[in-house]
Simulated assay, not measured.
Amino acid sequence: MEHYGPETYGELNADIYDEWHAALDPAEAVRSLAELIKEGPAGPVLELAVGTGRVTIPLAAEGIDLWGIDASEAMVARMRAKPGGDRIPVTIGDMADVAPDTEERFAMVFVVFSTFFFLMTQDEQVRCFVNVAGRLRPGGRFVLECPMPDVARYDRNQRVAAHEVGLGQVRLTAVRHDPVEQRFEGQHVLITDSGVRLAPAFMRYAWPSELDLMARIAGLERRARWGGWRREPFRGEGNYVTVYEKPATPAS
């Protein structure tokens, strides 16, 4: 964990991120997010951890007033090099701060994939919820896509998996699980004829009920939880989507 900060993952992985995640089609996420935006109040939308613009750019192409924040200048540079990426205002900073450079209030804030869990402590995750709530307009939504923690995959709290095996390269992940701190500390390992490439990825997972409690602390209410972007039933596995809402009127 030493020297690992909010920007570390992006700074070390920006040049290979799109290649390694090419199988993740953002189309369903973009479609569902666009529908949620239409259902809510009018106003700009903020993505936490915009990365290389995998979701941000196609969503902005729908005519949505989209903003972003990311801790990694290298990831944002990749986004800005893509068509349409340079037109999206992005703040370089910790996503737990949400939007430190503006007083703007947002109709929706969202974070996709497993990125919310890159906030490495429960305190940081709660701080993010509280800051999101403070930036939402009445009736605004906080939408999270998160993976359901699958701790049963870990034998003696560790796991090595092969993701690609070819004539010229092997790509592995090696992960240690800390059940006390609810952390996965992992490395993507790329072995080729020219050497070894390491790409660290550490995260602190949270259970769905824990996310709900964070939302309550922040004054948000859960409106929906689906088993994916198609609004399928949540069955406690895979990636799921939760929609929290800021009440239109403050609770008495």
Rank of each mutant, 00 (worst) to 15 (best):
G51S: 00
G51Y: 00
T52G: 06
G53V: 02
R54Y: 07
P58T: 03
A60D: 04
A60V: 03
A60E: 03
A61C: 04
A61H: 07
E62R: 09
I64A: 05
D65Y: 06
G68D: 03
G68Y: 00
D70P: 00
D70G: 00
D70R: 00
A71F: 01
S72K: 01
S72H: 01
E73V: 02
V76W: 01
R78T: 05
R78M: 12
A81C: 10
K82D: 09
P83L: 03
G85H: 00
G85F: 03
M95T: 08
A96M: 02
A99N: 07
D101N: 11
T102G: 04
E103H: 10
E103N: 08
E104L: 10
R105V: 01
M108W: 10
F110S: 07
F110Q: 11
T115S: 15
F116P: 09
F117H: 13
F117E: 12
M120S: 11
M120P: 11
T121Y: 04
T121A: 00
Q122A: 12
D123A: 09
E124W: 09
E124P: 02
V126F: 04
C128T: 11
F129N: 06
F129Y: 08
N131C: 12
A133I: 10
A133P: 14
R135P: 13
R137P: 13
P138N: 15
G139D: 12
G139H: 15
R141C: 14
F142H: 11
F142E: 10
V143A: 12
P147H: 10
P149I: 11
P149S: 08
V151F: 13
A152L: 14
A152H: 14
D155R: 11
R156N: 15
N157R: 08
N157K: 09
N157L: 06
N157G: 07
Q158F: 11
R159F: 02
R159V: 05
R159S: 06
R159L: 12
V160C: 01
V160Y: 01
V160N: 02
A162K: 08
H163Y: 14
V165Y: 15
G166Q: 07
L167Y: 12
Q169Y: 12
Q169K: 13
V170Y: 06
L172G: 00
R176A: 11
D178G: 07
P179Q: 09
P179R: 07
E181D: 13
E181N: 11
E185T: 14
E185G: 06
E185P: 04
G186C: 04
G186H: 04
H188G: 05
V189M: 05
